[in-house]
Design a protein around this nucleic acid. Structure first.
Lengths: 254, 254
DNA sequence: ATTTCATTGTGTACAAAAAACACAAAGATT
DNA sequence: AATCTTTGTGTTTTTTGTACACAATGAAAT
């Protein structure tokens, strides 16, 4: 096994790991970042371990920066997966053999690979600015549309479901969008984001009225041209008011 | 150190532990169960470790039964504490020395005591039915009124704060009360529970109207006599409808 | 037995919020 | 110049939430 990887395993917690559900939004679709394991067709969530002297929150920031290049990203723990059968129901058989073949016979050394609890974090990333990069044991890093996620390794499908549920709930008491949209966006774009996350259609007029009533948006004098039809106005979040609304957990009754 | 304790340490996860914020409700007050460490005046939350082959959820059920004797109890993970400084800011100095003195020099053996992540669970317990029992390293197990919690060991004050916040949020999308109240209760009792958790007064008439509108209560033909005044009607939860409301996460806009 | 008193039971009127709804204007395309 | 899809905007209706007052109960005190 790669000695750098062994060093990593030695300097990190063995019974706790981190898995990230990184959400992005592009072309009206909610996406999740997934990794393909080297030499296989198996996909999983990006994840990593926590250094012995590092807090879990810091570890997530590090992991996310490695995968997306982004520093400013919305991050939130949503659940910790403590089942004792998390690895038993892998969709693909022969996982262990394949991994040993790929990375060496000592990959599953008991010294490093213990019964493991995983902290699930969800992240909201600006799709356009993210530069996705595979990690040590994967060779592809790709955004998948939320409705077309394949069967993933381990309990990662369940993780995405839970993260999505948490995201939806989040929407009801905190604003969302700052980290998922580019700096300037149109009202229909914001609405499509909400519709995608909630999985239901919203009334255009009522949505706009509601969003403006929260007083976190700044209407810009510019419009987005180039679309084939009437040019919509651009908006951007008033970061200060947005952050305040985040803190205050104002009820967002969408 | 007690050999039984060493065995326990050997058969459990070392980098993950569990801490429980057990809420109870009695005489119009919200309470939390705390433990006093042997031979000290230090209090902490009940907690424990996870057996190597045991799921975290099962471990909590076990721990709770040990502390309260209760089997049917509402349980929910609310946060996982992954800081790297969780033990640094102990309120009392000389904790390590005291514990080594009490339990033996090998108490802090690095084999067992590692940098540790704690899964926080909150539990809602029926105060009247709980039989509280101290554990191996504590000699007292007591309900404390939420507004009078002393300074606790480690990050346990923060844990209670977070649990309470989670409980309050919970209240807004799920019914609460089944596990905190005796089987039969009066409307004013239920209201006092909500008021205590939310920390604010509610209008009697509107509260009753709202609760009844959720269609999870069954009005009984009996009344509670013995109080010094007009006897209130008794209610009980319709467990089936209650559970459905729990699942559906109907918006409870109290 | 009567009075006292804190508490409970109940309904209506008003205010606020959410939902339903339609037409005119923009601007690229043909 | 006409077409076509999307955007911008305001009013009405319905639903939900909030405020509020008086009569009745039943134990305790007299």
């Amino acid at each position: 096994m790669d000695p750098r990887f062994i060093t990593y395993l030695e300097k990190t917690l063995k019974e706790v790991s981190i898995d990230c559900v990184i959400f992005g939004f592009h072309e009206g679709e909610l996406k999740v970042l997934l990794l393909k394991w080297k030499g296989t067709e198996w996909w999983s969530l990006p994840g990593g371990r926590i250094y012995l002297e590092e807090s879990a929150d810091d570890a997530v920031v590090r992991i996310l920066q490695e995968r997306t290049g982004l520093k400013e990203i919305f991050l939130q723990q949503f659940y910790t997966f403590g089942g004792n059968d998390r690895y038993k129901n892998t969709p693909s058989q022969g996982l262990r053999e394949k991994l040993e073949q790929l990375f060496g016979d000592d990959f599953y050394d008991e010294k490093y690979m213990k019964r493991n609890v995983s902290m699930g974090y969800m992240a909201l990333a600006d799709f356009e600015q993210a530069v996705t990069t595979p990690d040590w044991y994967t060779d592809e890093c790709k955004w998948w549309e939320i409705s077309a996620i394949p069967e993933l390794l381990f309990d990662h499908n369940e993780m995405i479901e839970r993260a999505l549920k948490a995201l939806r709930r989040q929407l009801s008491y905190q604003p969302i969008g700052y980290n998922l949209l580019p700096e300037k966006f149109t009202m229909p774009e914001l609405q499509r984001l909400y519709e995608t996350i909630l999985g239901k259609q919203l009334d255009r007029r009522n949505f706009q009225k509601l969003m403006l009533s929260y007083d976190i948006l700044e209407k810009l004098p510019e419009k987005r041209t180039g679309g084939a039809f009437k040019s919509p106005f651009l908006y951007r979040f008033d970061k200060e008011k947005y952050d305040k609304a985040m803190q205050d957990e104002i009820l967002f009754s969408v």
